[in-house]
Design a protein around this nucleic acid. Sequence first.
RNA 1: GAGCCAUUAGCUCAGUCGGUAGAGCACCGGACUUUUAAUCCGGGUGUCCUGGGUUCGAGUCCCAGAUGGCUCACCA
Length: 510
Amino acid sequence: MLEKVKQISQVEQGEREAKEERDEREELRELRRLRLEKLEQLRENNVEPYGGKFVRTHLAREITGHFALHQDKRVAVAGRLMARRVHGKTTFADIQDISGRIQIYLRLNDVGEDAYALFGKLDIGDILGVEGKVFQTRMGEVTIAVEKFTLLAKSLRVLPEKWHGLKDVELRYRQRYLDLIMNPQVKETFIVRSKVIHAIRRFLDQKGFLEVETPMMHTVAGGAAARPFITHHNALDIDLYLRIAPELYLKRLLVGGLEKVYEINRNFRNEGISTKHNPEFTMLELYQAYADYYDMMNLTEELITTVAREVLGTTRVSYQGEEIDLSPPYRRVTMLEAVQEYTGLDFSALEDDQAAARAAAELSMEVEPADTWGSLLNRVFEEKVEAKLIQPTFVFDYPIEVSPLAKRKKDQPRLTYRFELFIYGREIANAFSELNDPVDQRVRFQQQAEKRLRGDEEAHMMDEDFLTALEYGMPPAGGLGIGIDRLVMLLTDSPSIRDVILFPLMKPRD
RNA sequence: GAGCCAUUAGCUCAGUCGGUAGAGCACCGGACUUUUAAUCCGGGUGUCCUGGGUUCGAGUCCCAGAUGGCUCACCA
């Protein structure tokens, strides 16, 4: 009995020590503790630290950019306190809002002792509303002479350093809000992203395209060669796939008579993460009935140049030190020509799979038994050519093996009416004359199914429901997909896809 | 999945040969009524990523792990 009591008291002691250690650690976070105390003090002095609506008359930039218009005018601005320079009975500070920063100036004589003391208790990071008259300092800085200010939100955490900003890449992604507060270029990038998407919508709407939304959760993951994420619907007790592409649903809409449709939304692919890949990413897909892939090339050129002009005001962009000219026409080259140009190898002269395998081996490529003329042509292109296509280049007529949803070329049955657009060695767009022959499509699915049986998890799945739709008759059509994230990377000179996705996927930290 | 690199105060970073951890900003106290990376005086606030090991002694050396970055692989 005594033993047991002893044991319990030992356990209790251990718990107590652990708790004391926690308390001690909590106490060590002095900066935050100090701010919590300030919060209490504010409330004791009847200052509400978390305000409500504040009516602003101007954004910072509107005032600083047009001083003459606002001189001596009374204005109200709101934003985050980003810097403070105290000179005894006067204080300068900087307020940051969506448009930028503006300096404010407080004098004890103007605001009174209580308010001046309160301002001294504020912290960098607090959100305020200020009212006062616009003037220019001796040094020429457009400034608001504060008559009144209101605390709108007390900050309990210390912002990153004012001069170097937030550099730690991990923190920038995990706490993007801090990145946005501290690094103006980051905010600019995401504003550009928003404008790009808006410009695309405007462009397509004007051309008579209808924006639609198709399912994100699929019972068959189709429309691309990729491994899907799997989720589960409890009530129906079925597994579902997060979509890897909207393609097969958008084509069903062509069957239904929606002749020009597009969707801008997320795709999910359960694959590796890199500077060019995020598990969820944004795609534009569009389909136009009675068009073909040449129409899609023209549309792609027009879309990209329109967006670049509207958003950046130019079609010449600098990407990672490389000058890229986005003005049309873009170079157009068949895959066969491109491979010949960069390797000297004329694939069109190779009669069969064996000849292709021998030729590929001579280029010191690994050849596998399952490889065919088309798969090798594609691989030689990917390995020897792709990275060299810096200026915008349409590469067209892709092998049929790697294009199970594209229409077969009439005169060259080993190829399809398909192109991809490359810029800076990266695939930006993918398009084809859509396969609308249900019998051919069934054969293609069957070939893909065989690849799946052989262990290719990225091969397309058979989609009977889609085939049924095609059997009702789908108009011939051109289809186009553009990776929005990659386009935005190009237009914002961002080296990583994570720089253009607000919250890229990160592993949880403990 | 593989290789290389990084992880030290809230942030940006030093830290020598293994000898008990520093700077700037931010913060706290004081001075200052047109500054602007304000300035001047005083104050260091820490799970040195985590866990083992070597050692009299580890931020530092070794092993394992975590997270992140880059490159490659895969892919769009």
